[in-house]
Design a protein around this nucleic acid. Structure first.
Lengths: 214, 214, 214, 214
DNA sequence: TATGAATGAGAATTCATTCAT
DNA sequence: AATGAATGAATTCTCATTCAT
């Protein structure tokens, strides 16, 4: 895996108000957390990789756990965010997509790109969320308040148009998320294997979900 | 989560040749590993919960990692095993199931039951596999040698009968596994929530997969 | 090094009143103590090599240190003993040897044989005596009471006959012991090296001491 | 035994680049290792005597064994070094000493002084070398490459001059080393005993070796 | 701000010894 | 007599965090 560059996925304003050392610490921490897990990574190791003194870490992050939170939170927010803010979301809410298939395509391509940019942090989130109650709450809140209401709207729209079956929203959502995450995880895990043709698998997954929900 | 009882899921012969203390250590370890993660669990903690001296742990398991392996391995094997040996598998190979739907039903119900019995160990496996190369190899080998060939047979049979689309086996398998694991994880995570009706969700998942692969 | 056989160097009566297990424990302990040192040898290891249960060791030897003493003491006694009891000693006291050279020859050949039979225990003694005050006392007492008076006699006899220089007994003794121990240690350490010709080195050492004391 | 002062026998430059705590740890370790042996000394004990936290030991020495090596190695080098570098050695190679006796005198006085300054470390070396293969190799290498060739030169010179007998170099060397080490050990062990007159014993040892090799 | 030495609590592991069988 | 399971104190080593410079 290539070393992380924070500028790839932290908002510009945020980055500008961050110190260079702080950034290097975050980048180093993401790299090593993803590789060895949070608990198995020592602050000493992070300091060395970030080329700072161990004490410097604690100037920017009160504790090691704080450092973890600083890594997880923005990505958690950005995982959910598109559903409320970006081009994609606005488009959907203006019902610019006529078909569920178009919607799926945009959703999947968008989240796949995001996942590939944020592989390391996503790994960390998947590993650590089960043990970080605070982050679990954050995730639940984001899901409930930011994501679910918008998605409910969209899905209801397609149900009403008769493009997908009249199942409970939470069931539809589960089946979609499950399939998309399966695709994402497979892509990350298998991306080096020759038989894996990403575009083909994306297309097949779209068809699978679409038909499955008909 | 209820405390684990090993007798629920270790073969009788195996249990009989195990010492009472050894069993109590395993049970305690499974409980705490699942709750706090392997690295964050101290042997002291395990010893206390198992009501043995800390040294006793090391009589039965050479190292803490050994203890982890002793927990993970049998469940890993049993996760794969049904595909080669039990009633379900034999039945399938004699093509006693006429329809893909029947096959899916048996598969899902069977794995759901297993998952509910082994929740804690499955949590541990999901958490630790990414960091335990040895176990990764074991898993790959089991998958390749024990599971894939049999499943390939069955799926090809249904493809030939025209009951599922003519997609590559690995794609079909990914979509099925993904959906089933999504169901399993949802069941474990949401089982206490009132709107979650397990049987209904099973049925919906079966329909989803079946239609998705048509 | 070949495994030790106690019968080689424990008196017959002593051996007869010893249990078979006790003997096997002693033999195993000597072997491993010599190889790894007393502190670095575990009772478990000894038990395994002796083919007995760990508890059995403590039936015959109250503590691990007791086992050490049981190994060291008889050899310590036998290192000193010849000077008071055996053929060599009696001979010397009857002044059957006319020349200092004859005396040296008997002394060295005798002690070399003893050293080669007891290599392992001698190693243990050299390693452990510095840390075992109790054994140090024993050694001093044996030296003072059993060895020194006899040896003094003999050496005085040769001084009086003009065969060795009129130096203080303790100096003569130091120079002899030093040269003999150097020979013994060299023999043990170098016995596998081709240029080492034992008989030649014995002869040279005799000449060296003899001339040195003229 | 008096507490060790490192400044007595570590080169000035080396000492200057060493931290105060590092020095205190080394001094404490030498003291206790010499008294109780390496394996029987706990890092806790060393820390207490050195007045540092136990963790501090491991900042300066990666492992306990590393600490041992750091103690043994410089003294091992310095035991051999004079034969290749210092005043004594240069003098000998310019054959400034006319007689073997002069040579012996310089050798013995020099090594006796060294031994008295480094008693504790020498004790440790003698105790631990048999169990530390790495150090054994180091010792052999030093002996072979640094000491033996020079000494061979000198001894051959005296053989050629007819001052010592024409014996193999290794035999001559063994007899000298043996006698000198015997003197050193006796001095260390007996230095508190009233009958022990060091200068007298040195003189007697010189005569003993000289005549022995005639 | 930044450093990195120092800390000491806590980790996994070992082992002599005990004791019920 | 003999076993070997069980113990728990002691050991080496790690690491997040603090703090004087």
């Amino acid at each position: 895996m290539l070393p992380i560059k924070l500028e790839d996925f932290l908002p510009h304003e945020k980055l500008q108000e961050m110190n260079e050392k702080e950034i290097k610490i975050l980048e180093a921490a993401i790299d090593i957390f993803a590789e060895k897990g949070f608990v198995s990574t020592s602050t000493n190791e992070i300091a060395k990789k970030a080329n700072v003194a161990e004490g410097t870490i604690f100037r920017y992050f009160k504790t090691k756990k704080d450092l973890l939170k600083s890594i997880i939170k923005p990505t958690l927010v950005k995982t959910i965010a598109p559903f409320e803010m970006d081009r994609f979301s606005k488009a959907v809410f203006h019902m610019e997509y006529d078909t569920f298939e178009d919607f799926l395509k945009v959703l999947i391509v968008n989240r796949m790109e995001f996942a590939k940019k944020n592989t390391a942090v996503i790994k960390i989130i998947i590993q650590e969320i089960p043990f970080q109650e605070e982050m679990q709450e954050e995730l639940k809140k984001l899901f409930k308040e930011k994501m679910y209401p918008r998605v409910e709207n969209v899905l209801q729209y397609f149900i009403d148009k008769g493009q997908i079956a009249d199942l409970p929203i939470h069931t539809i959502l589960r089946l979609i998320i499950t399939s998309v995450m399966g695709l994402v995880v497979s892509t990350i895990a298998l991306k080096d294997i020759s038989i894996w043709d990403e575009n083909l698998e994306i297309e097949r997954t779209i068809q699978f979900i679409k038909q499955g929900l008909q």
